[in-house]
């Protein structure tokens, strides 16, 4: 199994940390992983993206020209990455802020209203975990127990009391996927 993912949105949406938790979850189940962020000028306030690869084999290139899955969280990223999904691949996006919906017919497209759900839960910071939940519903590549272990590894101890809330947000995401 090799899953090549691009997660793209605005800086501050938790794109990089979502990728980190996913990568850590892969390590927890003994898989090979890579996490390659955009760290250039765009990190200073514009768009942010990260390429995450989870595989049973040694990861070759940490940067890619096509992906199995694109998780898209703003319009700029939709414009940039819709065309880079492999035929038969997966596109997951939050329609919030999207003005032009995806048009491709040869990929599987899903929506999750993550911003709305996070607001309903009273904490917009868990937005990215709602998205992660939706992704894991569509592609259960890592087990929930390993996601929790990954969360524990990537969050500093002082935030460990928030793990239950994060788990709730992931579950919310899993139950909110729209095909």
């Amino acid at each position: 199994m090799t899953e090549e993912i691009i997660i793209a949105g605005f800086g501050g949406q938790g794109v990089l940390s979502m990728g980190k938790i996913l990568a850590y979850s892969g390590i927890m189940q003994d898989q090979e992983v890579s996490w390659m962020p955009s760290y250039g000028p765009e990190m200073r306030g514009g768009t942010a993206n990260v390429t995450v690869i989870i595989s049973d084999e040694r990861v070759s290139s940490p940067i890619l020209n096509e992906y199995d899955t694109a998780i898209i969280l703003n319009q700029q990223s939709m414009d940039k990455f819709e065309g880079t999904i492999k035929p038969g691949g997966t596109l997951l996006y939050d329609p919030n802020g999207i003005t032009r919906h995806p048009e491709r017919k040869d990929i599987n497209i899903y929506q999750v209203t993550a911003a709305e759900k996070a607001a309903e839960m009273g904490n917009t910071k868990i937005f990215n975990m709602v998205v992660l939940g939706a992704y894991l519903k569509i592609k259960p590549i890592v087990k929930m127990e390993n996601v929790i272990k990954g969360l524990k590894k990537s969050l500093p101890d002082r935030y460990h009391h928030l793990i239950a809330l994060n788990e709730e947000a992931i579950t919310m995401g899993m139950n909110s996927v729209i095909e």
Binding site: K20, A23, I27, E32, V33, S34, W35, M36, P37, Y39, V59, P62, I63
Partner: peptide, 10 residues
């Protein structure tokens, strides 16, 4: 280089 420095791996 910046790629190896900035990327995360196991």
């Amino acid at each position: 280089d910046g790629m190896i420095g900035q990327m995360m791996e196991k």
